[in-house]
């Protein structure tokens, strides 16, 4: 998965005596010093959804997860859960950032409101990586990016686990408000880089 780059910085050759001594019968010795370095780097694969442990999830295609039905018959938000695994590694101390582009699931087009209705759905994403855990709260309190960062002081290889969760009846205008009809979406970005 990761191809460490090695660069020969120097190869030094030292011969015990000058070339003219080759014909002499005394023992000869040579020392060759080899040095290399490995760059700090991180890798991330595409997210994989654990289809065995989901609630209210419809079609999953590549990195896109479709929620089966965002609202129930009473027009309230339905509980939704899924877990995404992102294989990755960092070979040095590093920082993992998980961000939400919109700060919640917002109806498209952005900003559309109607009195008495909600047009945003808050969610949280619990991030686990390298023994650390953090929660990204996309509270739909205003449309805009939110992010959460984990700093890890050692190399780690494995999977970033993202547990996505929507509470029952959660909306941007209060618990239980009816959701206005339409398509809601957000993009979660995972970025990892050396410190």
């Amino acid at each position: 998965m990761n191809r460490a780059s090695a660069r020969v910085l120097a190869i030094a050759v030292a011969i015990g005596s000058g070339g003219a001594a080759c014909a002499q019968s005394v023992p000869q010795s040579a020392t060759i010093a080899v040095t290399a370095s490995v760059d700090r780097k991180c890798t991330l694969a595409n997210p994989q959804i654990d289809l065995g442990q989901t609630t209210n999830i419809g079609q999953v295609s590549g990195s896109t997860v479709r929620i089966a039905d965002l609202s129930d018959d009473q027009m309230s938000t339905k509980v939704t859960d899924f877990t995404a695994e992102v294989a990755g590694m960092c070979n040095a101390s590093h920082q993992l950032t998980v961000s939400s582009d919109r700060g919640g699931l917002w109806r498209d087009p952005a900003g559309l409101r109607s009195n008495g209705f909600a047009n945003g759905v808050p969610y949280r994403a619990t991030i686990s990586w390298g023994g650390e855990q953090a929660i990204l709260r996309a509270n739909a309190s205003g449309e805009g990016q939110v992010q959460q960062t984990l700093s890890v002081d050692q190399p780690v290889g494995g999977s970033v686990q993202i547990q996505f969760h929507i509470d029952q009846s959660a909306t941007n205008v209060g618990v239980g408000a009816p959701l206005i009809a339409g398509t809601y979406d957000d993009t979660i970005r995972v970025t990892m880089g050396p410190l």
């Binding site: 991330l44 206005i180 339409g182």
Partner: peptide, 22 residues
Amino acid sequence: TPAAAAPTASTLLQVSGDVPVR
């Protein structure tokens, strides 16, 4: 030796859902 790769990696996850007219 290949050119040094960018040290930072990123990926994304898109989440969407529909609310039908009720």
